[in-house]
Design a binder for these strands. Sequence first.
DNA 1: TTTATATACTCAATGAGAGAGTATATGCTC
DNA 2: GAGCATATACTCTCTCATTGAGTATATAAA
Lengths: 180, 180
Amino acid sequence: MSKAESQFSPVYLIYGCLAEKAAHGYEIHQRISSDLGFVWSISQSQLYTLLKRLEKQNLIVGELQLQDGRPDRKKFQLSMKAKQSYQAWLYSPVWVSMRALRMELLTKIYFLSSQDPDAIEELISKQIEKIEISLKSIAAQKEIIADEQIINQISMEIKYSQIQMMFEFLKQFNIDQVRR
Amino acid sequence: MSKAESQFSPVYLIYGCLAEKAAHGYEIHQRISSDLGFVWSISQSQLYTLLKRLEKQNLIVGELQLQDGRPDRKKFQLSMKAKQSYQAWLYSPVWVSMRALRMELLTKIYFLSSQDPDAIEELISKQIEKIEISLKSIAAQKEIIADEQIINQISMEIKYSQIQMMFEFLKQFNIDQVRR
DNA sequence: TTTATATACTCAATGAGAGAGTATATGCTC
DNA sequence: GAGCATATACTCTCTCATTGAGTATATAAA
């Protein structure tokens, strides 16, 4: 399980927000908290830290806006590179783990629902395929480790049931729910 | 969800190993990888970093052993304080989240199975109670957010199903499996 | 003879995440 | 009209998690 596969940092959450329109930190945080508050919980400071890092890496570009009566703020836009990596991310199914399926896949569906609702169906069917393959490989692994430490076996059993559950869930997922 | 409730760092994994006998880093890593490799994946360097931190905080005490033909090594023991916190941890049910139920609870069961197998039953029944309460509160929350962003609702739905699954799993858990 | 594996640990660097702090304006209550 | 909470907007510090690569020696396998 490589880093790229297993780790999903909130970077794409920022990209997703900025893909629709340039925004400043506070605004992004508001949106995430209200629309995805049960999927992600990201603190203000964490978000700002992340924005700074992305700006330093030239993945997003900030422009300071002076306001009076209000604190100044910095409006961010996606760089070309970030735009591309966001697009690639948005349309591809996630690595099969419960965390990714719950957090990352739902996030993709959320952004697709306002940015490209017609693509949701295909994403989900690609995801279902990927899960199917994964279930088979977990089943095979279960056989292999049948003589190992019982705790490992139980752990794998639980993992299997969870993914199976997501499999069923996605198969009967009603796309109209998330269409706007 | 406070840090203490939600975060389970591998610290207790180390405590659990050292509770049985003093050991050095390499040994601990071997044991975790083979017995709990599907539950945890912790790199060598992460383990050594952690050992250093715990030693610095006087939670474990290390003693350098010079070897010839082999690299020197450091044998660690639990401090009194760590022993107490380990005992308290070992017998209490975990915070209800999938991650904790899969990783932390199984780890407790694993250590109990060699350190105090008779206590497993009570731990599981306490855990079941705790899950029951949690399921009720999630169900109530589902009602409350029924008008919120659909993605949040779906996320909560998934969470509920997962925990329900663990609930059923624990209710029919056969303790003899893990008894030695 | 070379190469992989086992033993044992170090170091550097990045990233995640919590927590508290700063500053100003508006609205609301007593 | 005095005080107090809330909304706007962002900063700073610190700890801990995690990866990746490197060091050094001995033995077993090819």
